[in-house]
Amino acid sequence: MSAAKRVQQWATFARTWHIFDCKWQDPYQSANVIKKYLMGLHKPIYHPMNDCGDVVVCINSREIALRGDEWRKRAYFHHTGYPGGASWTLAWELHNKDPTMIIKKAVYKSMKGNLQRRHTMERLFIYPGEEIPDDVMQNVSNQIRQQRLVPQRLDHIPEDEVQQYPKVMEYPSDYVLK
């Protein structure tokens, strides 16, 4: 095997580390994207018996965005196994307790339940903020594209840009400014 072929072989089977910024992302939509990288579905060499999945590092999981009223409508079920041990936790209560849990459960649920799923989940790292340990960050070599645009707050837009923005509405001539 020539040197070039040998390097190609290493590059093909090496695990790539991807980073994903969860800021203002829907966890259930981004789970379908993260899943592909975790399982290695984006690779041409993919096979269920081929251990070719990559590592995904999710940052800013505290800043995820849920749609509409899902924060108070979506419930997470848990049963302790004892009689009367069932409990339903609302999404915002769960996010208060552990800001990484919603994205973790979303990715876990997006994958098919087989023996490989637990091992695939071990390759997912979730951090609530932007700080990641250095030994994780130095492996990262790719960024997964975000699904949704991060909206900008009006008070974060510079004042002169707000003033220079084209005007759509005009007040009637007898309007009293409030």
Binding site: I64, R67, G68, W71, K73, W92
Partner: peptide, 21 residues
């Protein structure tokens, strides 16, 4: 729950009833 980020779908504006989860 109001302190967490929420996004909305503009398609729901003229819906008579928003489908529930």
């Amino acid at each position: 729950y109001k302190k967490f980020n929420t996004y909305f779908d503009e398609k729901t504006i003229f819906m008579k009833r928003i489908p529930d989860q």
